[in-house]
Amino acid sequence: MPIDAAKAISAEPRSTALTWGHKDIQLYHLGIGAGIPATDPEELRYTLESRLHVLPSFATVAGGGMAVAGGMSAPGIDVDLAAVLHGGQTVELHRPIPVSGEATQTSKVAAVYDKGKAAVIVLRSDVADADGPLWTCDTRIFARGEGGFGGERGPSDRLEPPAREPDHTVERAIREDQALLYRLSGDWNPLHADPAFAEVAGFERPILHGLCSYGMVLKAVVDTALDGDVARVRSYTTRFAGVVYPGETLRVRMWRDEGRVHVTASAVERDDAPVLTDTIVDHVRSGVNGLDPE
Rank of each mutant, 00 (worst) to 15 (best):
P2N: 01
I3Y: 06
E12D: 15
T16C: 01
W20D: 01
Y28E: 03
H29K: 05
I32L: 14
I32F: 14
A38Y: 12
E42Y: 05
F58G: 00
A59R: 00
A62E: 02
G63F: 02
M72C: 07
D80S: 11
T90R: 13
R95S: 01
P96D: 10
Q105T: 00
D114C: 04
G116K: 07
K117F: 10
V122S: 07
R124A: 09
D126P: 00
W135E: 00
G145Y: 15
E152T: 13
R153W: 03
R153N: 11
P155Y: 06
P166I: 06
I174P: 04
L180Q: 13
L184G: 05
A193Y: 09
A201L: 06
E204P: 04
G210E: 03
S213M: 08
V217Y: 04
V221Y: 03
D223C: 02
A231K: 04
V233H: 01
Y236M: 06
V244C: 13
E248N: 15
T249V: 13
M254Y: 13
W255M: 10
W255K: 11
E258S: 12
V263A: 12
A265Q: 11
A265P: 09
A267F: 08
V268M: 05
R270G: 07
L276E: 05
V284E: 05
S286N: 10
S286H: 15
G287E: 08
G287Y: 06
